[in-house]
Amino acid sequence: MASIHNIGAIFRRELKAYFQSAVAYVFMVVFLVLTGFLTFSVARFYERGVADLAPFFFWHPWVYLLLVPAATMSLWAEERRSGTVELLLTMPITMTEAILGKFFAAWLFITIGVVLTFPIVITAAYLGSPDMGVVLSAYFGSILLAGAYVAVGMLTSSMSRSQVIGFVLGLLGCLLLLLAGWEPITGFFVRWAPDWLVRAIASFSFMPHYDAMQRGVIDLQDIAYYVSVMGLMIFATHIVLDNRKSA
């Protein structure tokens, strides 16, 4: 069975690698500047005159779309390009432990960025009295969404030695999951696919699950959805690496 100790060792190395390179700082600064700009300048946080964080959380899926695949693209592609994957996978650990260690490190890394947006909560609390329950639920949903993005990005990173391919495929994968329920996408299927299939595709979308938590509703079904997306992507990463690690 997976050992916490081994997962922990991989996790710590991976997290440290983020902060040892410029990636961490560039990511954090861009993430904070971008969410700040979109919230205050584009969504007109002050002019709305409502002390809630809806305009802030509205942008998260879109900012993640760009930044999460950038943060995950190196997870496996770089290991494969530099040959360290051979070192890593001949250490006394299982592939699952290596994958989980990397996944949790990347997820925590994004989560640190999300948590660093706390001044906006302070701002809203200073200006009015936002419902803190809703704010916490929205943060929780946003972090779960980030985890799903990380899992997709990790899968696409494992597919080739090229980080660029990992990034582009990751972005595409996340975009598809984000928009799966959107009319132009379902419209594409509705003409020829049976009704149940259209509904199944639409139900893969991140959006309805994200929206529910933005309204302060934490439903076990939504959590189960995110956990299954992550589990599925982790499983798929395992299969891809089994087949392609040395190629």
Partner: peptide, 25 residues
């Protein structure tokens, strides 16, 4: 195992890299 071309994590220091190995072992 010493793989061909001695792969290692470039951004880590020698000590950190060996400590990582020791931790896993």
């Amino acid at each position: 195992y010493l793989p061909e071309n001695a792969p290692a994590y470039d951004s880590m220091t020698v000590t950190d890299f060996l400590r990582f190995g020791a931790g896993i072992r």
